[in-house]
Simulated assay, not measured.
Amino acid sequence: MATDESTAWPMPGRTPCVSIVMPCFNAASHLATSVGSVLAQTFTQWELIAVDDGSTDGTLAWLRAQTDPRIRPLSQRNGGVSRARNAGLALARGQWVAFLDADDTWAPRFLQTMVLALQSKPNAVLAYCGWQNVGLPGGRGAPFVPPDLETPDKMEALFASCRWPIHAALTSRAAVVRAGGFDVGLKNSEDYALWLRVCGAGEIVRVPEVLAYYHFHGSNQASGQALRAALQHLAAQERFLAERPDFARQLGARRVRQLTLGALLSRGYEHYWKRDLPTARAIFRTVMRRGYGSLKDWAYMLPSLLPEWAHGRLVALRDERG
């Protein structure tokens, strides 16, 4: 497909090259920035399907007030982000699809650069790029470019953790449809679950530039719900293993447990050392129910069976003793 940007879409009978799906819930205060980053794209052959997911603020009115014909508002009852994305995906017409949340942004060259990357690899199903977290305290917003993951160990690396945020990728719409879209049973890790199914079907391409920006603005974002995120990540892993028993056999039972329960245990320790005891306790109990961990691990985990006040007292005593 030609990449000449001298003529802006839309034109009569012309289909967009890229469909952008944006779920929106009470996002009126963010839309000028996020949609503005779409309007600023140097690549113009796009459509933006903005799905209002039962907002109670001015989100839908704002979307309907836009005059650019490439912006296609859609309204539905509140059903969650995965249902909203699936609804937008059902209307998408582009060869490629990108997912941009209503409070995140792209660099102006995001679409142009990602489309060129995919066109350079005819068998590729997905391109991913670097990103930057904006608004995190303590200087934790350094730009990050992930490594090249198109290696013989690609699926193991992707299975271990989600390697890019949802808006740092451009993927084949056909591949997403074949993968079944987003799992509406997952409230977190729904993008991770989708990438596993998509990336197992073809080549992926790294774009070594920071082109996506994740904006932190409060603890109500999905990324701030630590316990649910940890348990949903495990659920996504287990669903993929059930779908792909060949992959489970390839990894072997020991490696599977390391990448699933071992990773969950590590998250539990992270919260334990931060003294986020409620989250750590819930994770530890999940790991113990699965019979995972060394004797040393169990020495840390077993007190989570006690009442929380008793566990807290034991932790305090351990801290006093150094």
Score class of each variant (00 low, 15 high):
1 M>D: 11
6 S>W: 13
12 P>R: 04
15 T>W: 14
18 V>Q: 12
21 V>E: 03
23 P>L: 04
23 P>S: 09
32 A>L: 08
32 A>E: 15
38 V>T: 05
44 T>I: 08
45 Q>N: 14
50 A>C: 09
52 D>A: 08
52 D>W: 09
58 G>H: 12
58 G>K: 08
58 G>T: 14
58 G>P: 05
58 G>N: 13
58 G>F: 03
63 L>V: 11
64 R>K: 14
64 R>C: 14
72 R>V: 15
72 R>L: 15
81 V>C: 09
84 A>E: 01
86 N>L: 01
87 A>G: 05
93 R>I: 02
99 F>H: 11
99 F>C: 07
103 D>V: 02
112 Q>Y: 07
115 V>Q: 05
119 Q>A: 11
119 Q>T: 05
121 K>I: 13
122 P>S: 09
125 V>Y: 06
129 C>S: 08
131 W>E: 01
133 N>E: 03
137 P>F: 03
142 A>S: 10
142 A>G: 05
144 F>R: 10
146 P>Y: 05
151 T>F: 04
152 P>A: 13
153 D>Y: 06
153 D>T: 15
159 F>Q: 02
165 P>G: 03
170 L>E: 03
175 A>Q: 05
176 V>R: 04
177 V>M: 11
185 G>M: 03
186 L>A: 03
187 K>S: 03
190 E>G: 07
197 R>T: 04
203 E>D: 10
204 I>Y: 02
205 V>I: 12
213 Y>K: 07
215 H>T: 09
220 N>D: 01
223 S>N: 10
224 G>I: 01
225 Q>P: 00
225 Q>T: 00
232 Q>C: 14
233 H>T: 14
237 Q>M: 12
243 E>V: 13
247 F>A: 04
255 R>M: 06
265 L>I: 10
267 R>G: 01
271 H>V: 06
273 W>A: 12
276 D>T: 12
277 L>P: 01
278 P>D: 01
281 R>Q: 08
289 R>A: 13
290 R>P: 00
292 Y>E: 01
293 G>M: 12
294 S>R: 11
295 L>N: 04
296 K>D: 10
297 D>M: 06
298 W>P: 00
299 A>I: 14
300 Y>E: 00
300 Y>T: 05
302 L>D: 00
304 S>P: 07
308 E>N: 13
315 V>N: 04
315 V>R: 14
315 V>P: 04
316 A>N: 12
317 L>N: 03
317 L>T: 06
319 D>G: 02
320 E>A: 15
322 G>C: 07
